[in-house]
Design a protein around this nucleic acid. Structure first.
Lengths: 206, 206
DNA sequence: TGTTATACTGACCGTCTGGTCATTCTGTTG
DNA sequence: CAACAGAATGACCAGACGGTCAGTATAACA
């Protein structure tokens, strides 16, 4: 689990602590106000340090933002990868995918807000340095797509393009979180998972 | 089609012309750079007028932005309402819904960018003055939901909650546009419509 | 306890940009 | 053509905010 136990210097421990503190503050502030409207002073205050301190650990406002985003996204992809590896059926893969993402977003709603806001930007050409959100999102889709392909050999399903299917299911999942936030849907994660699975699996036809 | 032909004064004609010009410029600039990064000077330049002129027609940067957004959204809802009224089957309603939205976004891609970026904001509590995007979006969903309910009396479909189904289809449609933008999907609108319909209607089961 | 290293602070600065308004331009009218 | 109305302009201003850095606090060590 943990990497080889080289004893951490005082310095490293401190640095890690501050970093974590700052990222948590950043997530909450950026989630509440968006990148542009949030001020560095606000982040500093939320983190309980002076503004100058932020610049000891990060070089710019944007860098703080991207670090917060990256840490959240990478953890999600990690979990997704682990869950999907264990699945061998199409149904199982879809369930694992939807379930993991819904649970993660539910538990980190302020992260979801930041994450979600990136998608608008994504439609516009952006400098390579921040392309990683797009890449990581597509990673998730590809993860599901290849799980679907692998499982399709064993399960009988109608032959739909797995890439497109994966993309559609990805969007559907994101949509369910919005539903919750936008209309105050009270459904539990499991109910939502069941709904997606039922719809995707059986369709509407009687 | 047109409203009763009260002769327009010179002043009205001019004002309408300027307004349209400004809104078009605003759409393109805000789409390319986002609300925060776009400057009023840029909008003015794109519209081919001086900055002061903008403030003759609108009271603030935000007001320009919201006007651009509103005009686009309202036209979409109008088309949607017309198309959906004509449909009497579940399948027809879904097709009309997906087809209308896809076609509209395809034809007004820069509008889509602004529209899309609003959804991130939507998850956060916003002042009532700009709640209308959220409301209009939910209007679209409700439009489909009630069409589904009405048609369900005549068509045989499995009993799935129409509200939730409408929401899911709404998100699916938005997703398809992203697909196009994000992965350069080459599929035509009709192909995408067919895909959604096939998936939603028949499901994955063989 | 004195000396040094380094983490931290927050007042300050330069820049940027939304919004204003005194002035200029345009075209309408008598 | 003169007089006028109101549309358009763009130089200017004030406030906000990201980023800096000279100075202070704290800890490590001898």
């Amino acid at each position: 689990m943990t990497s080889p136990r080289r004893p951490r210097s005082r310095r490293e421990v401190l640095s890690e602590f501050r970093t974590a503190e700052i990222l948590a503050a950043a997530r909450s502030v950026f989630a509440a106000r968006g990148f542009a409207d949030a001020t560095v002073d606000e982040v500093a205050q939320a983190a309980g340090v002076a503004k100058g301190t932020l610049y000891l650990y990060y070089r710019s406002k944007r860098e703080i933002y991207l670090a917060a985003l990256r840490s959240g996204v990478e953890e999600l992809v990690l979990r997704l990868r682990q869950r999907l590896e264990a699945e061998t059926t199409v149904e199982g893969a879809i369930r694992a995918f939807v379930q993991t993402r819904l649970a993660y977003f539910e538990a980190h709603l302020d992260f979801f807000r930041i994450y979600y806001s990136e998608f608008a930007t994504m439609l516009t050409p952006v400098p390579a340095s921040q392309r990683f959100v797009r890449e990581i999102y597509l990673d998730q889709i590809r993860l599901l797509a290849s799980a679907l392909r692998a499982a399709a050999d064993r399960t009988r399903v109608r032959p739909l393009d797995p890439d497109r299917l994966a993309f559609a299911i990805g969007e559907l999942t994101r949509g369910l979180i919005s539903d919750r936030a936008l209309r105050g849907s009270q459904a539990s994660v499991d109910e939502d998972v069941a709904f997606v699975l039922d719809l995707v699996w059986n369709g509407l036809a009687p």
